[in-house]
Design a protein around this nucleic acid. Structure first.
Lengths: 231, 231
DNA sequence: GACGTCATACCTGTCTGACAACTAACTAAA
DNA sequence: TTTAGTTAGTTGTCAGACAGGTATGACGTC
């Protein structure tokens, strides 16, 4: 994985451009100070991701960064990262934290027993200080010893991944167009009746445990969501 | 790749179930009559696909299959099929066909010269007779000998694929929440200010030729769009 | 009996060196 | 000009070895 990340960075940093040829495996392995076998395992993954093209007897080449936009909605990343990738400074205001007991409706959605303890977060996320996303998160704290006093002003993904070693695997996301109601108008400082994009997301970890249900309201004038649809 | 396919089949055929442990790499390599290095390259890809989980010192295990919904938005299919898969009868009303010359703005979006001839379709798509989607399509007819007199009341994908042998490969889709304006209110017979989901799609064929630009307005009370977001 | 330590077996991660298969470019012969 | 052969360079595959991590059971201590 380290090798793969390193090569990813080499490509991302512009050291290589589409069509460029990578060093031969023997030379590249020596350059990175790893064995050829390990390098090849990394290259296999990069090939599967479509970032490189290997041809026996010829070499390995950087692939055209085909349609894959910078990042489509099919890739899962935190709201913080979503804001950052648009080039803004991410922030949080209006944080509310509460320990709650799962209601019947919520319990069904999160597939837990109705008596389960949850941690509810309400946050307004800002880009360069301007409110752009309103987030409601429901965390299953029976899976993690999360305290109410935790610092929730930054990325929740960062916190869970780095401090609690959680391995986030995927999210089942429902895409809904909604109209800003009175609450959202004041939270996001938008005109009444502005269209917003609501993403309802069920987040799972590597053990397929549902640990987070989130509702994110995105200002449609600030974010563009794309997806690559293949046949 | 052969090794990977073979293991894929082993999993698909039910020889292994989620949680089961695969043979050790040494034994598995001997069993498949390949080297351990080659086997590991195959396993790396399977791991990246989320089909297996490797743990150093313990072993390799079959992963829980990701609960792919019936079909997420990341799969490309026609509006007709989208309506059908929800269990409705698909139809078309209010068809308008026109040959037009690409405007400057449209030419940029479709990446053609401003003088290019296009075929414009406006259609209201119905589910069990009720209007549910409003579609505007722009076809690059310099790529296909499409006539205005063609039957456009059914699936455009069907027509292009079966009659013209077009191989549709993918679409770059932009997801937008919008509010029903007066035109859409009358076309879709909805309340004013109803939220709609607008999909702006650039369709490409196997040669990466952009052949269709479409704008589809979906009634949000009739369709649910989902997507699997992986990390 | 409960607990911690250690030895052990087993597994994945990595490395080394070698050879096979393939490709492209060049050379020489027809 | 065409064809066949040669050669250098690359990826594909292989065998064997060792390092590092994990679970298990034996053993001694409290």
């Amino acid at each position: 994985m380290k090798i793969k990340e390193h090569i990813d960075n080499l490509i991302a940093s512009g050291n290589y451009e589409p069509g460029d040829k990578l060093p031969s495996e023997t030379a590249f392995a020596r350059e990175l100070d790893v064995s050829r076998a390990s390098l090849r395992e990394a290259l296999r993954v990069l090939e599967k991701e479509g970032k490189i093209i290997k041809t026996q007897g010829v070499g390995t080449f950087i692939a055209e960064p085909i349609p894959r936009f910078k990042k489509g909605i099919e890739e899962l990343f935190s709201v913080t990262d979503t804001i950052k990738k648009e080039g803004y400074q991410a922030g949080t205001i209006g944080l509310e934290v509460a320990s709650i007991i799962a209601s019947k409706k919520l319990a069904i959605q999160m597939k837990v027993k109705p008596s389960t303890k949850l941690l509810q977060l309400k946050r307004i996320r800002t880009a360069d200080g301007k409110p752009v996303v309103y987030c409601e998160d429901f965390l299953n704290i029976e899976l993690f010893p999360l305290a109410e006093t935790e610092n929730f002003t930054a990325s929740l993904f960062d916190l869970l991944e780095n401090k609690y070693g959680l391995k986030i695997k995927y999210a089942l996301t429902e895409i809904n167009p909604v109209i800003a109601n009175q609450k959202l108008v004041s939270k996001l400082e938008v005109q009444p009746n502005m269209p917003l994009l609501l993403l309802k997301q069920l987040h799972y970890d590597e053990k397929d445990q549902l640990f987070l249900y989130s509702k994110n309201y995105f200002r449609s004038d600030q974010f563009q969501f794309r997806v690559l649809r293949t046949r």
